[in-house]
Nucleic acid binder design. Structure first.
Lengths: 221, 221
DNA sequence: CTGGACCAGATCGTCGACAATTTTGTTGAC
DNA sequence: GTCAACAAAATTGTCGACGATCTGGTCCAG
């Protein structure tokens, strides 16, 4: 029993692999994914890949066209703006729930640490780092909110953001403004003020959406 | 070409069939669905049923457990309350978007007609009819909001409501209170007041959630 | 040169067969 | 009667094969 025949790969591992590539840009928006290619790559049958595709379609990553296969989902500008409005209220709710929570010392420390890191990134004008910390910050608030359905619904409407994670996504100005929002949100949550936290978060996401609305058309194809 | 061999049933038709049964109670929450049974019933292969299951899992109707099959999704009280909070903000957003819309005459007429019907149901104390009109009313607002992602996200968090669609779901008192909310929402949308419409809708759904929170534990198993 | 008809290759759709796993049923000891 | 161990049945997991559909290229008429 020394040479196990390469332990069978799990469905979720394959799912994660595909998601990661989409996030990282290995698969481009609109790209067609060929069943047999992935089947060979992961050394599984085509049927399993097919089922995994259906799952990923359900999560909003892929688009399915009958008899034509699946494509990495591509969002139009109008669609991204529609999702943006949903994101406003959901991120707002997450902030509210976080502010309603009796925070643990670890949670308080985490929020402060993330805010510090964003402040540093802003001070050193490091847009990439700010962007990355920004994602973690929103994820942390979502985790503190502790509502699986908020998290799940948010995940869907956040999908287009990964694609817009370009260096140009934040200018120096917009980064400063974004971080001012964050500071208000952070302190509102730490102070346990749900109304303030939600309002600040909604305004914050709304501003981000207007930024998207002003982007040139070429960003969306 | 006289005897077509029973035109092949489409995936979406099968999906709808299963969904309908879940809504109508033909399949009970927690019930296990056997692949081969459905395959035979619809005269298709098991693989297709399997893929359809994955799709329905993605939409929140079914739950999948490896090596054990799929079950009609069952929600705990805590989960329903979590979903309720999401519903608050999403229904609120739908009302806001509807109020932001330049309504057509048809849309105005539809809203008024639905409100009238609910008023009638309330006046005649017809809980079942009120319940049914209530669903249509919320659907109509969602349609006017005209945001596919609001609709999609809402569909998920509305799922537990179908199950609670019992006659006892509204008492005479709560029906009156619910319809007062509706009247405020309706007039706010007709008057084009987004803030008022959203606030009223949020309060309305919030009240409904508190009603759920007070239900006895037996309703959730 | 343009466009439509046709053909060949690539890819998807569906099914049935067999293996793996879980569930159910039975037996027997205590 | 209760429980464990085992055996049988039911159900799910996986794959490969075959037909159906789509894609892209070629050829020929105009």
């Amino acid at each position: 029993m020394d040479t196990k025949p390469a332990a069978r790969i799990s469905d979720s591992a394959i799912c994660d692999g595909i998601k990661t590539r989409i996030h990282r840009g290995g698969y481009a928006p609109g790209q067609r994914l060929i069943e047999v290619d992935l089947a060979e790559e992961f050394s599984v049958g085509r049927g399993r890949i097919r089922e995994i595709f259906k799952t990923l379609v359900g999560e909003g990553y892929l688009e399915f066209i009958k008899n034509r296969g699946v494509y990495v989902r591509r969002f139009t500008r109008a669609e991204i703006l529609e999702m943006g409005r949903v994101r406003e209220v959901l991120e707002g709710l997450a902030a509210r729930l976080a502010a309603e929570t009796e925070l643990t010392v670890e949670q308080r420390a985490l929020l402060r640490a993330l805010q510090n890191r964003m402040d540093e990134a802003e001070a050193s004008n490091d847009v990439d780092r700010y962007n990355s910390e920004n994602f973690q910050y929103h994820a942390a608030i979502c985790a503190i909110a502790n509502n699986r359905h908020v998290e799940q619904s948010l995940a869907r409407v956040r999908l287009p953001l990964y694609r817009l994670q370009l260096p140009r996504s934040f200018s120096s100005d917009s980064m400063a403004s974004s971080n001012r929002d964050h500071q208000v949100i952070t302190s509102s949550i730490l102070a346990g003020k749900p109304d303030a936290a939600e309002a600040a978060m909604r305004a914050h996401v709304h501003a981000g959406n207007q930024h998207v609305a002003r982007l040139a058309e070429e960003h969306f194809r």
